[in-house]
Write a protein that binds this DNA or RNA. Structure first.
Lengths: 247, 247
DNA sequence: CTAGCTTCTTGTCAGTTCAACAAAAAGCAG
DNA sequence: CTGCTTTTTGTTGAACTGACAAGAAGCTAG
């Protein structure tokens, strides 16, 4: 019970970033090699302290995005993921981190930031498989970010955030396949995405070609919520009882 | 750029709670009348400061749930909603709040807690309609909590958290209707929920009755993710173009 | 104790969607 | 032109959806 003299204990606030992108059809996350203690020399998610008492949290996330990844937050998707405050998560003391999820299209190779000795894109599979590990509770944060991405591309247009301004339907399919981790039928995918009102806007008869038949170009449509959603099939180990079988 | 002497600014951390329940088929939220400044005498969401530097955030939420609402957190749904840290959100200074969403079944009339002069269930419609207002940015938090509930009962079993241990399918339908704000066909609803594998487990031939034919009793099943999801129909103002019309 | 009322449960049926596969279209390389 | 790749359009049977009818199982009133 708080008495008259009790004062709430102050904590230090950081932002951490799960920045995802697609490189050669594989899902990558941006990680840094820590240049300072604790966990010096280990891999970690980019992030840092709130810079001053007047800085909004999302502004801090945007700033770190710029400082540590040289990415412009105005052009890419950024959302709050969750707040991680286990008392023992940081050996320096009570440090609470507001994690964010960022989705970036394409490519630019990142540069080392202020307190990171190296920053690089790494396939997420390196971490989910356990081959590489992350400092602090960043493994948990990454898992939560991936799960958020997996479920959110089901019923929102988030997948378009992985693509450039204009893209083909096959480009979009690569996003779904990389995030979900299995392949989809191109013919059914092709019609399904176009059947969702407001998901995609065709950009005038423009096309682009590499090897096969040229593909139509689209851009993200006005609708953020996908109805009907792009439901991923259940894992193949489950035998889904159909409504008729159940009766 | 942080120099050698720079120290991250400490902030004060609070937890706030959006506690939802159903009373006579209407969605209610628990609000308190603030007993202390700021906003003394205004309505607000229950919440409070982290009690000490070693308290985990979710533990703080559980504690506030007990202190301010006399609810046992072990038996009800509690999840993190989001973190609100606009620099000007609290006139006392830089106070960051980790909001949580709690779902409670039924009934007990709450009692006034430590720094709340009154606590009571209030229909959410009072706030969403603008008839009543909330202190701080709690209106935003409530809106976010409601939206989270609306979308989450679509593809998770969250709706069962509004019900008692055992419940009828009509009970469950009332939850969906209250949260979504419109009525559903009982006959289609009846079969739809039972067609989702793992959503409901029938409890042995038990029944219960008030006026009509006795209804079967169920309890929450083992599955947390609903496949297929309980999709709400789109708002009636939209004319959904069918796939065949689109072609 | 039967008629009527309420609520729960099962049936039915047409329109729509979905997944799997075939096939056509459109470019390029040789 | 022939073959190869990739994109786009068709087809088809099974499954799901939403709207509604009808039966089942209690209670209450007369």
């Amino acid at each position: 019970m708080p008495n008259e003299t009790w004062q709430p204990p102050p904590v230090l606030l950081t932002v951490d970033l799960v920045i995802l992108t697609l490189r050669s059809s594989t899902l990558h996350v941006l990680v840094i090699e820590r240049g300072i203690a604790p966990y010096k020399g280990h891999w970690a998610l980019p992030g840092g302290f709130i810079s001053d008492a007047g800085e909004d949290i999302v502004d801090a996330a945007r700033r770190e995005l710029r400082e540590e990844a040289d990415l412009d937050a105005t052009s890419l998707h950024l959302e709050q993921l969750g707040t991680y405050g286990r008392p023992d998560r940081d050996p320096r003391g009570r440090i609470v981190s507001v994690a964010h999820l960022a989705i970036a299209p394409g490519l630019p190779e990142p540069e080392a930031g202020t307190d990171a000795s190296a920053a690089s894109w790494c396939p997420v599979e390196e971490f989910t498989s356990g081959r590489r590990s992350l400092a602090f509770d960043h493994h948990q944060i990454l898992d939560d970010g991936l799960e958020r991405a997996r479920t959110k591309i089901e019923h929102t247009s988030l997948a378009t955030a992985f693509c450039d301004e204009t893209f083909t339907i096959t480009d979009l399919q690569r996003v779904y396949e990389a995030v979900w981790g299995f392949e989809l039928d191109p013919r059914n995918f092709y019609r399904k995405v176009q059947a969702v009102p407001g998901f995609l806007t065709p950009v005038g008869s423009d096309r682009r070609t590499t090897r096969g038949r040229p593909a139509r170009l689209f851009q993200a449509g006005p609708e953020h919520l996908l109805r009907p959603p792009m439901m991923r099939p259940l894992p193949p180990d489950q035998n889904p009882p159909t409504q008729s079988e159940t009766k």
